[in-house]
Design a protein around this nucleic acid. Structure first.
Lengths: 197, 197, 197, 197
DNA sequence: AATGAATGAGTATTCATTCAT
DNA sequence: TATGAATGAATACTCATTCAT
């Protein structure tokens, strides 16, 4: 019989997924060979293929896990705020991401590039993107006094997410990117959109 | 004496750069092996290394050429417009890019991901990004009635470029992305920023 | 249960080392490509790199193994002789080497040339050379009636080894090299050195 | 019309040979590619094949030129000495070579290794080796009071040359090689050989 | 579940040589 | 003479995958 320490004792499968996330976030997809990932998980390459049919399958699981973790973090922060502050929260999320999220963004960018040629990855990204947008759309609806998100809420959420992604990329490559101006411009546009009847 | 047909008369070097651009735009960086690029240029792999010290050097030249081509196109369109329509032109550029530019964006995204780990590529991107932004900043200054671009013009230009890049990526991955809303939100924010004293 | 035939039971690693020794001794370092060595070991080139991080690492192991084998042979012959005959034994060793050792010397010469530019190989040669010299120095001390080798014993051993190496090279390139004269001259000089108080 | 400065203006052919000698002496045969040698001679690789049918032919010329230069230097020093001091001169030559001749020896060792598998190179080495030995043999005959070198003189010359070559190699690889002892042992043996009736 | 050995196709790069100009 | 472009074969090495144990 084997007793498992509750938190630390990840299954081999989960260790592999976590290792893949770490490697891609830290060193990019080019460095994410089977050998490298297996070593990061302290496991032999052969075992990786016992748990996953291919390297692609593992990478897909890694992308899903990374995006789900991000989504959960967004949700948690959102649940702790009153509805009227939700639009501000989006901007704070974005600013926090820009300040701290270099690694996670590296992973997201690497996978985005790969997804353009890989339908399975594209599907994962689309689904979890949609979930995050729906989450924010719900918040925007509440702030407007509506119970359920409408098309205008989803459009706002999708736009802000996309725009901030672009800003995040630019800020990572260009050290002196004008973050304040970007936030100001986007916030003004968003407020006007919200106040429209 | 040799008459040169305008298109076929590219030097081998230029044919290699063009081939690299094509391959990366069409199939991504993962498919851009020396063998593939050489074949696309109708050349032997050995010859590629006669003209470029390494694959990396060729890819860097390809990125530069692609971005310079883009910059030239932006400049040309800009020169054909009266100053008061310049802000609108940015939005039209962006919309045109979203509608038509899938291939060019694929290349840009692939190189962006690689640039996070490759300082030489990052420098190329930064330089040509900065040139494009300066170009637009000049337009925005003229529209404000100023002769020379100030920090506020550059901030606006940088923000719009970054935000539209994000929108472009999202639109490529998500077919039903709300382009109209995005343009509206960004335009509103930009106008408010411009009208500020 | 597996019965192992003594010769065939080499590990893959050992088969690779032996194959490298054989190829270098027979055809020289220029012919010692990864492909050639792998074929000689009846193994795929990929497997060579599974067992050795690089071709250089394999060649270093091969050099060490060849020199250790030689050293062991010298020791064995030495142990079978009475102390007074030890100086003569050195000359017999040398003559035997000259007569029979073409292949081993080809390897040694190839590696010596390479070692001038490769510190790792140079270290291996130096260490095993020193061991062989110390071995002979001990013999010369015993022949003098001393228990432990002194500087004069090591100087004699080093000189004889070096001089015979040169003679061996010359004899290999020049078929009619005067081996008897060489042995006579060296023996006379060595005896005089030994008889000195 | 082209005027040629008398000493500096080597023919292209000679510049190539000199460049090959320099490259091999400095960096070894492994570094002596056609490209490298041509660059050292400030010439294009294509031109090399105009003057030499193959790389091998150039290397053979380089070896011959290096050995002939060495032979000329030996002859010159010999001509300046009275007959009775000639044996000493051999030892001084050798000591000078050991002290200063690292580069030349590197070349000689590299070619020696290659010559074991290349009959054309082996012939060059043998011929010029024989010439140098004959030179010394003549000296030894004179010192004995004979007019013409006999077998015993040639044997002595061949032995000393070979032995000193070995010592030179050992001294290059082993920094603390006992040069004094080596010279002493060889000189004693040589004198005894000379004094024999 | 896990290992470690093995494969075969693929990678970028270097090389001596040829040839039209 | 001399150049610079071009070729094709060879180089060491990496990779995802398979499989017997």
């Amino acid at each position: 019989m084997k007793t498992t320490a509750p938190a630390a004792a990840l299954s081999t499968r989960d260790r592999l997924v976590a290792a893949a996330v770490r490697v891609v976030a830290r060193d990019g997809l080019e460095a994410a060979s089977v050998k490298t990932i297996a070593a990061e998980a302290d496991v032999t390459p052969g075992l990786l293929h016992y748990h996953f049919p291919s390297k692609e399958a593992l990478l897909e699981a890694a992308l899903r896990q990374a995006l789900e973790g991000y989504l959960a973090a967004v949700r948690a922060r959102r649940d702790a705020l009153p509805p009227t502050r939700l639009l501000d929260a989006v901007f704070e999320d974005a600013r926090a991401a820009i300040a701290a999220d270099g690694e996670f963004f590296r992973l997201r960018l690497a996978f985005a590039a790969k997804a353009l040629a890989d339908p399975a990855l594209a599907a994962v990204m689309r689904d979890l993107n949609a979930a995050a947008i729906e989450e924010n759309a719900r918040s925007f609806a509440l702030a407007r006094g509506a119970k359920r998100p409408a098309a205008r809420d989803r459009a706002l959420a999708a736009t802000l997410k996309a725009a901030f992604d672009g800003v995040l990329l630019a800020a990572l490559v260009t050290p002196d990117f004008p973050l304040e101006a970007a936030a100001d411009i986007l916030r003004t546009g968003a407020r006007a959109w919200q106040d429209r009847p």
